[in-house]
Each structure stands twice: as structure tokens, then as C-alpha cells.
């Protein structure tokens, strides 16, 4: 049984920040790949840029979506300790629109974790299979 993380963060509309968003999206997998692979508890992670209405252009918000084995709260330390994942999440926090910035600022694991929970949307999850990442890997090895 897995648990979803669905971080939804509206972002600042400043043109320079909009450029950063595109850059973050482009390199997201490079940032997080090693850490997520090592964790052995994440099935996938995707970063989706939600566009503004066509007449406005640019990006309205970021949705960072993953699916975890185990409880999210107990394992977010993995995200804090993995430099690439930490950088990606703090990168999102840094370009968040007013009202979605970390408050208090991210200075330690608790504030990091509290921020993620504060922008995590509740989600209904369908699963085609009950296996965990470790079970899948064990079957393949």
C-alpha cells in the first residue's frame, strides 16, 4: 500500500522566476534520481508545470507528485538528507508565490517537513499492484 505526495505550489509570476521554473523542470530528474533510487521507497516522481491561461503564458504552479511506500512523514528525512532532492524542493519553495512561501522559513528538517506537508494536497490513489519498490526489486533480482 503506497502513499501519495502531491506538492502543489503556485509560483511567482516575475519573468526571471518564470525562467528559473523552466530550468528546474528541465533538470528535475537529474537532481532527484540518485537520492530517490537510493531510498528504495519511491515508485516514481514527476514534476508538472501547470500553465497559466493561454493569453497570459508562463507557468502558474508546480505540482510535484510522488508515490511512497511507507509513511511519508516518517521518511521525509530522506528528502532532506539527499542533496539533489533537498535542492529541488527548496528550489520550489524559493520561487513560490506569496501565500505559498515557507512560513517559517526552511532552516532545518522540521521546517522543511512542515512546508512539504503544508502544500501537500490530499489525493485519492489507485494502485494496479500492491507491491513495494523493495518487493519488486527482490522479485527481479
Amino acid at each position: 500500500m503506497a502513499n501519495p505526495l502531491s506538492m502543489y505550489v503556485p509560483i511567482d509570476q516575475d519573468p526571471q522566476i518564470q525562467e528559473k521554473v523552466a530550468d528546474l523542470a528541465k533538470h528535475f530528474v537529474d537532481f532527484v534520481k540518485e537520492g530517490l533510487t537510493d531510498s528504495q521507497i519511491v515508485h516514481y516522481a514527476k514534476l508538472v508545470l501547470i500553465p497559466n491561461p493561454p493569453d497570459k503564458g508562463g507557468t502558474q504552479a508546480i505540482l510535484l507528485s510522488t508515490e511512497f511506500d511507507e509513511g511519508m512523514r516518517q521518511y521525509l528525512r530522506v528528502f532532506w538528507e539527499q542533496p539533489g532532492i533537498n535542492m529541488a524542493i527548496q528550489g520550489i519553495a524559493n520561487i513560490a508565490a506569496e501565500g505559498y512561501k515557507p512560513d517559517p522559513p526552511i532552516t532545518d528538517l522540521d521546517s522543511f517537513q512542515n512546508y512539504i506537508e503544508s502544500v501537500n494536497l490530499e489525493a485519492n490513489l489507485y494502485e494496479a499492484y500492491p507491491d513495494t519498490v523493495k518487493q519488486i526489486k527482490a522479485k527481479k533480482s
Binding site: 511519508m72 512523514r73 517559517p104 522540521d110 517537513q113 512542515n114 506537508e117 503544508s118
Partner: peptide
């Protein structure tokens, strides 16, 4: 500033 786990308590979904 307290950890969310303390704020929300043991009955919380997470």
C-alpha cells in the same frame, strides 16, 4: 514551528 506530527497528533492520516 512545532513539528507537524505534534501539531496534528496521532489520529492524523500521516
Amino acid at each position: 514551528r512545532f513539528p507537524m506530527v505534534f501539531q496534528k497528533g496521532p489520529a492524523s492520516k500521516l
